[in-house]
Simulated scan of single mutants.
Amino acid sequence: MNVANLSIKEIRERLEILDEVPKDFLQYLKEDKRKGVQALVRQVEAVLARQEQLARQWTEMTEYERMLRSKGHVHVFGIDEVGRGPLAGPVVAGAVCLPEDFYLPGLNDSKKLPAATREAFYEVIMRDALAVGIGIVDARRIDEINILAATKEAMRLAIDNAGMMPDACLLDAVQLSGLACEQVPIIGGDGKSVSIAAASIVAKVTRDKMMAEYAAQYPQYGFDKNAGYGTAEHVAAIARFGPTPLHRMTFAGVKEQA
């Protein structure tokens, strides 16, 4: 192929429609001395390097899933929660069972992803997962039983609401009593397992939507911006307006200002 006969615009258009850049085509581009073509080569190589890095990350983050499937476990659930630390709102857990051939490069701990990426990944997970369950425990229940117990209750609810019983569960740090399947608690699991990462995204997007809805009911507290966490503005609003039914009365930031 003589890419010298192609304009830089034509080369760019060809690259845009290719799902994968053939190695021989990339080599032809490298041999083209035009500065514009060399700029395109650098862009392509950066994309390829990023794809390779994400593929390696995916392999690393599916190690636990592959280990459990090698033991005969078909329905491997990832379990995670969001909302342990806020002064207001529920704790929300997600339970997700991904197909063995699922591939979503870049899937990671929800806290490490921009909101737009989280929401896009959420749509893919909800569409392609074998099962998704969500568990929600509100502020009153958190006050009644404490946040750790409420977190575990939300996780059990998420499993129960998935519509499928797990053969094995990967959990972010905690272990659940009375669960009749193998459990693998992983510290920092939402950054080490794609199943837990998927659960963290489902939980995070679900809770953020809830807090945005609560912001319309209680606009003084900025729930759409702080998600119930104890920002200076949020604490000041509690001191000025008092706590809402969404606030956790046993949490220090609320008790001190209420």
Rank of each mutant, 00 (worst) to 15 (best):
M1Y: 12
N2Y: 08
E13F: 11
E13P: 06
I17Y: 14
V21Y: 09
P22L: 10
P22Q: 07
F25D: 05
F25A: 02
E31K: 15
D32L: 11
K33E: 15
V37C: 10
A39K: 14
L40W: 09
V41G: 07
V41F: 08
Q43E: 15
L48C: 06
A49E: 15
A49N: 11
A49M: 13
Q51S: 11
E52G: 07
Q53Y: 11
T59K: 15
T59P: 03
T59G: 13
E60R: 14
M61W: 06
T62Q: 10
E63V: 13
Y64Q: 08
R66I: 00
M67S: 12
K71F: 05
G72K: 11
H73A: 13
H73T: 03
V76I: 13
I79F: 00
E81C: 01
V82D: 05
V82T: 06
R84W: 03
G85N: 08
L87C: 10
A88M: 13
V91W: 04
A93Q: 01
G94Y: 06
L98V: 09
L98M: 12
F102T: 03
F102R: 11
Y103F: 15
N108Y: 08
N108A: 12
K111F: 08
P114R: 09
A116Q: 14
T117Y: 12
R118I: 06
E123Q: 15
E123A: 15
M126K: 15
D128P: 05
A129T: 09
L130F: 05
A131F: 08
I134L: 03
D138G: 14
D138R: 12
D138M: 08
A139K: 11
A139G: 12
R141G: 06
D143M: 07
I145T: 11
N146I: 07
A150Q: 01
T151E: 04
K152G: 03
E153R: 08
M155H: 00
M155N: 00
L157C: 09
A158W: 01
A158C: 07
I159Q: 10
D160M: 10
N161S: 13
A162M: 06
P166H: 02
D172M: 01
L176H: 00
L179I: 04
L179V: 05
Q183T: 02
Q183S: 01
V184A: 01
P185N: 01
P185T: 00
I187R: 04
G189E: 03
G189L: 02
G189K: 04
D190F: 00
V194A: 09
A198M: 06
A199H: 00
A199G: 01
I201C: 02
I201K: 02
A203Y: 00
K204I: 02
V205D: 01
R207N: 05
K209W: 07
M211N: 03
M211A: 04
E213L: 14
E213R: 15
Y214D: 10
Y214H: 13
A216W: 10
A216H: 13
P219H: 05
Y221E: 03
D224F: 02
N226P: 03
A227Q: 13
A227K: 13
A232Q: 12
A236K: 14
A237Q: 01
I238E: 04
I238P: 02
A239E: 14
A239Y: 03
F241C: 14
G242C: 04
G242I: 10
T244I: 09
P245W: 12
M249W: 10
F251I: 08
A252T: 12
G253F: 07
Q257T: 06
A258S: 14
